[in-house]
Every structure is written in C-alpha cells, then in structure tokens.
Simulated assay, not measured.
Amino acid sequence: MSTLHVETLSRVYPSGEGQVTALAPFTHTFAPGITAVVGPSGSGKSTLLNLLAGFDTPTTGRVVVNGTDLHALPEAGRADFRLAHYGFVFQNHNLVSILTALENVEFPLTLAGVPPRERRDRARALLDRVGLGARASHLPSQLSGGEAQRVALARALANDPEVLLADEPTGNLDTRTGERVLELLTAPAREGRTVVLITHDRDVAALADHTLRVRDGTVTAEQEGVRV
C-alpha cells in the first residue's frame, strides 16, 4: 500500500509588485486508489501535479511518499526517487519517437540499471498486459493514439511505482479508447497504488474513488459527493 501525503503545501509566484497564489496551503493524504483532480483551466491543477512530482518547489509545505520528504532531497536525489517510486502518463503520450514500443517500455528500466534480459522480459509482459504484445516492434508513428497511450501506461508501470500521476490521459482519445485506458489505470489502483488523475471530464472523474476540486488555487476534498 502506497502513502502520498502533503502538509501545508502551497505555491506562490512573484508578479510585478505583488504575488500570485497558484496553490493555497492545504494538507491531504492521498489514499490508495484513484483520486481525480478536477477544476477549470488555470485553477491550479497543473501546479499541484508539478509539486507532487517534485518538478516544482513548494513555497511552503512537504510532499511525503512512504515516509520520504520529496523536497528535502537534492535535485539528483529527487530524480532517482521519481524513477523508483513514480510513474507518469501525460495527455500527449511523450514516447521517444526513435524507439519501438518495447524499447520505450524498457527505457525506465534501463535508467534503473535492470539487466538486459530481465528488463526485456518485464517490458514484454507489460505490453501483453495492456494488450499490445503484437505491436512491440512498432514505432510510435505506427501506433494509433490509443495504442501509444497504452504503451505510455506500460512504461509508467515499468519500475512498479507506488504513485502514478496522470495528466489528462484520455484528453486526446475518443470515448471508447479513453475507457480502455481508464480500465488499465484502475488495475494498479486496485493493487494498492495511489493514482492521481487530472481530468476535465466529469464522466472520468465519476469513476474515481476520491475527488479533489481546485478553484483559484484552493483545493477542496470531496467524498461520496459531499464536500468536506
């Protein structure tokens, strides 16, 4: 079971002679399962995701993953920690164009120093898991949008991360393909991983176990449709 906790987390940016609060201080424990983060454009959703990932530095507060304070680590240490404990799925799949589907899934395993045979076997198993074993030798340009996103999800799972961060993973997909990607995200959530899913789609958010609403930088948690 993974644990992702934020404590008085905030982000303030200088603006002219004043300041802009992109994210007001909030404290929250992300339970295992899928947490949907919803809100209008410019509300602070991306700021939150960047802080959770350690891509940006908070003005106040901490991000703690399984007891480790992410932002207490040096920059190189954060990168190593992300590689070992996080998986990422973006709206644009961000696959490496010159690598095959199999090589894309292998890539984080290579960075982690996994031996060649082991990483190849693990990558093949993950492609089979997302239904793309037969497409292993295809380049991203030879895949449909949904196939590329499923390869990206397999890559995100390569190092068996405790935390998955997904930024509009179904945003560029048709409804049926998006549902397939969501089904694949549900499986790691049921295995005890913490999945944080940014989405503007109400139907997608309705499938989540938990919901955070962000508006004007303020985060509000909801449970079973009741604001708390």
Rank of each mutant, 00 (worst) to 15 (best):
H28L: 13
D56W: 03
V204T: 11
T21C: 14
G18Q: 10
T68V: 15
S141A: 15
D80V: 04
P140C: 08
F88C: 00
R202I: 01
L95T: 10
L126N: 14
G171C: 07
D216Q: 09
T29I: 04
Q223F: 00
L109H: 10
A205T: 01
G44T: 15
F90C: 07
E191L: 15
K45C: 13
G42I: 02
N159V: 09
V114G: 08
A154L: 11
T68H: 12
L4E: 03
G77V: 03
L102C: 10
T8N: 15
E147L: 09
L73E: 07
L165E: 02
Q19P: 02
H93V: 05
R120H: 12
L207H: 04
V195C: 08
L52F: 10
R78E: 00
G39N: 08
A84L: 06
R150H: 04
G192H: 10
L111P: 06
A208E: 01
A206G: 10
V130P: 08
L153G: 01
A136W: 08
F55H: 05
N104Q: 11
V37M: 09
G61F: 00
G146I: 11
V130F: 05
S15R: 14
T220C: 13
L143P: 12
A24K: 15
R119F: 11
R117K: 14
G77C: 03
T3C: 07
T175R: 09
T218C: 06
I98E: 15
F81Q: 10
A187Q: 12
A154G: 11
